[in-house]
């Protein structure tokens, strides 16, 4: 496959520079995103699967994929999937985000 038709996530074999073997502590909000995902994926009915999460991440616009963080990609994907499944309503979700941004 030529590199120009690769999707953004498909980076095996490319050269994206040296590895920095460092680690930062996961932040509390990141732990909560992880927990939301696992609560949904580990249910008996596997309500959202890991493959769905990844598909949602792969569908993010390439420029967004590269500029936001790891758990930011997770919550972007997960919230889209939950809207897709009809569990969350887009308007309701947007309104809640706006309320939080306004410091409600």
């Amino acid at each position: 496959m030529s590199d120009d038709i690769r999707q953004q996530h498909d980076m095996g074999g490319l050269d994206k520079g040296p590895v920095t073997p460092s680690a930062h502590e996961i932040e509390p909000w990141e732990k909560r995103v992880e927990a939301i995902m696992r609560l949904l994926s580990m249910r008996k009915d596997r309500f959202v699967t890991v493959d769905e999460l990844r598909r949602g991440i792969e569908e993010l616009p390439p420029e967004l994929y590269d500029t936001i963080g790891y758990y930011e990609r997770w919550i972007a994907s997960l919230s889209n999937i939950l809207v897709e499944k009809g569990v969350l309503d887009r308007a309701e979700l947007d309104a809640r985000v706006k309320a939080l941004e306004a410091g409600a």
């Binding site: 909000w29 909560r32 939301i36 758990y71 919550i75 997960l78 919230s79 939080l100 941004e101």
Partner: peptide, 18 residues
């Protein structure tokens, strides 16, 4: 003390609605 950008709000909104 945590970052409060769009994605943190999106996470909090998703969690509270669920």
């Amino acid at each position: 003390d945590e970052p409060q950008g769009y994605y943190q709000h999106l996470a909090a909104a998703t969690r509270s609605l669920l």
